[in-house]
Design a binder for these strands. Structure first.
Lengths: 229, 229
DNA sequence: CGTGGGGTTGATACAGTTCAAGATACGTGG
DNA sequence: CCACGTATCTTGAACTGTATCAACCCCACG
């Protein structure tokens, strides 16, 4: 790993504030690797060997059960994944694959646990990241339990439009199949629901969803700051 | 808080290994309180003031949205709740009420964050607890996404029977309404599904569910170590 | 050009909710 | 200890949401 990469990583919030010595120990053990689109990075059921940090590209976290598959999360730079498994040294509950070409920083699990005990700033970063993800998944569970798929979609459109900079439309960054899986619905259902939303303030053409009536969409989505991000 | 209580708390895994000085600081700030059944302990949307630790009784974590209510977790001694909100100092995403009379240890959030930074052993306990809960909720999300309500119920019966000591039956510790809400289904649906299960190895009479055919129940539940606990 | 994957649309089936009515259990006060 | 009132549980019927299966369209890419 060259010094340019190291500098970039040093500035990630996860490593901010930790001692140079401990950071060096992590980096010495770490590997920075590139993966082609579609590569399976980890498989559920395996034991964790590395903490993974997405530097470039998008990683899809998913799980399989009884022939079904579901997308649980999409990880974009810069964020860790499978942190909880590494901390507890227990098997992965999710699988991960690179959805685009990706660059991943891989730090051996033992090194992470080791430095965690010695460096309070690093410990704080780790626990902050973990708490943040915990809250994210609580929101997901509430979203799943208390909203219909149509409401989830409408809420997602509002959220995503905001994240993309309040431009009045959403540019889909990936296919509708993946979006459907992310929202916990089938592609067919997504397709139908999208056309249904034309009567509630959002229209879809190809990969662009346009918000035509903010008020109507909000009324339909029933936004909730304790669910939406 | 008397010394007997303090001793009991000192032995909780959360405080195990931390320095006496830091433990003292936490206890000095902490309060041990008793609540009647049904008391709302925290309300979603509020900012965290205390880390709560259930010493006695059962606490129900739930959330409301658009007129609906859903039980997200049942906390039994000894365990923390709303840890993530305390760590991040962000509003609660869940509400909590005492489901039975409870005794709760309440440690001011600021004290927790403070000691976390100074005591590595405490930090490790906190992060372990948090990671453990994170994994629990990942399992819940997978359970919700990839199983039908009948499968969830069957899997729950198997799990619970094991937790209660492999006696071949499950003693319901609370009403079926709450069980239904925990499993993300309506009471009516639970009732019907329970009678359906009589054809798949589990019968219900009053507050006791008896496993009549382990093999058949397993075949129906499709158990998965990456979902079930 | 074909060919294949993603997307849409339609028909059908199933799962789950809702509403309503009855049955059963349960705690309380007489 | 019983009677009552209330909450819980069960059952039925109708309805809504979502999945499934199948056909078709469209466009990108060989």
């Amino acid at each position: 790993m060259d010094t340019q990469d190291t500098d970039l990583i040093r500035n990630l919030s996860l490593f901010h504030g930790m001692s140079q010595k401990h950071f060096g120990a992590l980096m010495k053990a770490a590997r920075l690797e590139n993966f082609a689109r579609g590569t399976v990075l980890i498989r559920e059921g395996q034991m964790p060997a590395f903490l993974h940090i997405v530097i470039k590209g998008t990683v899809e976290l998913f799980a399989n059960h009884d022939g079904k598959e579901s997308t649980l999360d999409l990880i974009e730079p810069v964020a860790t994944f499978i942190l909880a498994a590494v901390i507890r040294d227990e098997m992965y509950l999710k699988s991960a694959r690179s959805f685009t070409p990706t660059q991943i920083l891989m730090i051996p699990a033992a090194a992470v646990r080791n430095v965690f005990s010695r460096d309070a700033a690093f410990a704080r970063s780790i626990v902050n990241e973990l708490a943040s993800r915990y809250r994210g998944i609580v929101r997901s569970l509430k979203n799943e339990r208390m909203r219909s798929s149509a409401e989830r979609l409408a809420a997602w459109i509002r959220d995503e439009e905001r994240r993309q900079g309040h431009r009045g439309y959403v540019e889909l960054k990936y296919g509708k199949r993946l979006l459907a899986s992310t929202l916990g619905m089938t592609p067919e259902n997504l397709s139908r629901t999208l056309s249904l939303l034309s009567a509630h303030g959002a229209g879809c053409e190809g990969r662009q969803i346009t918000i035509t009536d903010r008020q109507a969409l909000a009324a339909f989505a029933r936004p909730n700051p304790l669910i939406d991000s």
